[in-house]
Amino acid sequence: MSALLDIKDVVVRFAVRGGVFSSAGSIDAVSGVSLSIEEGKTYGIVGESGSGKTTLARAVAGLHHASEGSILYRGQELRDLPEAQFRKLRREIVMMFQDPIGSLSPRLSVKSLITEPFRIQGMKGRDLDAEARRLLAMVGLPPEFATRYPYQISGGQARRVGVARALALDPKLLIADEPTAGLDVSIQGEMLNLLARLQDELGLAIMIITHNLNVVRHITDRVGIMYLGKLVEEGETDTVFSAPRHPYTLALLAANPEPDPDAQLMRIELQGEPPSILNRPKGCEFHTRCPFAQARCSTEVPLWQIAGRAAHRCHFPASWEQDKACPA
């Protein structure tokens, strides 16, 4: 099956200026990521804050330059694509940003905001009032919201305006950075059901970045776990959730707070603090915090290993063969 989006060994490098970083020169915020997204499917990206999720998403959307690797969209190389050509693709690949209020221009009304994509794409002759009503209805906001300004709506309402805007042009690939952070569970459910419906109706592929593991578990087909700019584990969501192999994935799944004050929590405590990408640990980059690290981990880089319906990067992955309840 050919993928809609095929990312191979993508590196996104930022130059760092003077001061204490003068010796570093540059940092790789995304450091060799490969994944592919099938048409009409949902791919979830989770990982530590600062692990490069947004940067990766922005590279796919053409908002950051990928220094290395390849980003194929329907077989077409997006890396180094001239802006004039990329512009046409912006109808098909749209990004919803993480910071809902900050990414909405405060001087534009909701109507202008959600119909702005038509103007940017130079699509004239549309009834913008009707489009605004259609888009607002799609995200469950009453039509009178069209005349409001960003400061007059709540954080959750702003998020829905962001979705309406993203869907204006009937995209093929929607990149959603934390689309439900700040939404209460009922509206989060509505939003995710809405995305699922649109996905079924429009064959929309979705790349979703989220910290909410419950969201990932329910709505994604595949999931990639990022740490320090690299994937440490990726595969079919069901497989990764039922039999996680990489210790960071284990810690992440164990950390999911339960809506029960008396829940018996089996936490896997990570040691220390997230390392800096200016100073990547040798060997396995997770070894400074890994509760299962052994001598070999600090010297030898673990290889990407494909195991069944998932793949991981660890010398001593959890094993689920002998005892399903207790990772080794």
Binding site: V185, I187, Q188, G189, N214, H218, I219, P259, D260, P261
Partner: peptide, 28 residues
């Protein structure tokens, strides 16, 4: 554990953390 208001009960039921079976149609 003992939500007394119907809204609180609905809120708790909507939490995907409470839903063990995978679903694409979350309660609202």
């Amino acid at each position: 554990h003992h939500p007394a208001h119907p809204y609180t009960r609905a809120l708790l039921e909507c939490d995907p953390g409470h839903i063990k079976e995978k679903t694409r149609n979350l309660p609202t």
